[in-house]
Design a protein around this nucleic acid. Sequence first.
DNA 1: CGACAAACGGAGCAATCACTCCGGTTATTT
DNA 2: AAATAACCGGAGTGATTGCTCCGTTTGTCG
Lengths: 207, 207
Amino acid sequence: MTPEAPVPSRPLRRDAVENRDRLLAAANQVFDEQGLDASVAEVARVAGVGMGTLYRRFPTKDALIDALVHQILDITIEMATQAATEPDGTGLERFLELSSAYQAQHPGCLPRLWNTDHAMVRKARRRIADLLAEAQHHGRIRPDLTNTDLTLVMFSIRAIVATTRMHAPDAWRRHLDLLIAGMRPGPGELGHPPLSQADLDRILTRA
Amino acid sequence: MTPEAPVPSRPLRRDAVENRDRLLAAANQVFDEQGLDASVAEVARVAGVGMGTLYRRFPTKDALIDALVHQILDITIEMATQAATEPDGTGLERFLELSSAYQAQHPGCLPRLWNTDHAMVRKARRRIADLLAEAQHHGRIRPDLTNTDLTLVMFSIRAIVATTRMHAPDAWRRHLDLLIAGMRPGPGELGHPPLSQADLDRILTRA
DNA sequence: CGACAAACGGAGCAATCACTCCGGTTATTT
DNA sequence: AAATAACCGGAGTGATTGCTCCGTTTGTCG
């Protein structure tokens, strides 16, 4: 786990912080366009800095990606917080729409979204659990749906976004319609048991 | 498009066909265990043959993967055909369960399943469309569901299988329950329009 | 201003990978 | 059995990648 450079003993120099911002912006652009397999040299080129500068700020390629994921999770958590203010238990649906739309515009590091920075993922999942409880309390979502089910729902949306965004950037909306229709209260229960929290933790911490 | 070696002018020698089978089996095993990024050298090592033998039979790594995908699609189409004999329009659900279970045991080339060998993919999707029509005719599936929706459903299952199979090999069953619940006839229609066939074709032919 | 720690760029390194080449071997055919 | 065409193994090639090293430049502070 190397979320970023170690704790700085002194504040960064002015040119250093500017180059760091440039690197993050360039990484977002390059990974969005070419995927995570894009080379770090390309990121440095787009940022207009040398390799040494990149690696002094982010000791490894993974650390750079982690920083981007951190940004996305930060905004995702913010979206969940804001969605909690929606009335009548509609917050969960609102959140799924907001976060999916955001992901569709930042597809670069989608493959790592829920498999990195576990502390923030836990925080996000806690907020989502609250949204789920509220929605179930209002009878909008079936009572047997669990928080692990919702994580699989977000895996599912992530995959649809990643697969379709180039040629049909809104296709995920239809798929989300379908998923939410399945989440509504229905005649019976879902036929199979949900994923246990322990199993999901193992999946999230190494995939 | 290089599905395999060019048309053989003469039948293969006995040792050649055996080595070809060994290579396919080894490729399945290696890609299942290590993913598609595994090296071809590793495949040759497990198969017990040299690199030259591998490349004479499969002119490129992609051709080798295509051959594996071809096998999977072959069995998938067979499953769809067999599911069509199920009564009362339950064939679609049966097919989704069968094909998902099969994919869970051959996860190696899942990333390429629906993006390679377009002729067979079209054939498979045609069979699935028949299953959908039959299910809708019996009132088991909502009338506004389209064949493109089903393709997204299979993308979704593919992603869940790929993500969870290591630590929870049956997690996809719960997710499929949820998807099918959403596919059942409901009060209203899905809120957004389905993916057009043309857009889906573009997605399938380059992703 | 002057000095120094910090930051800079980019050539170079080691590892990996898909793929080729070729001298020796073997199945097949007459 | 002898001829031959097909087949075999695996060292070698060229390209790419993540990452390091180091001589030079620059922001910061007394």
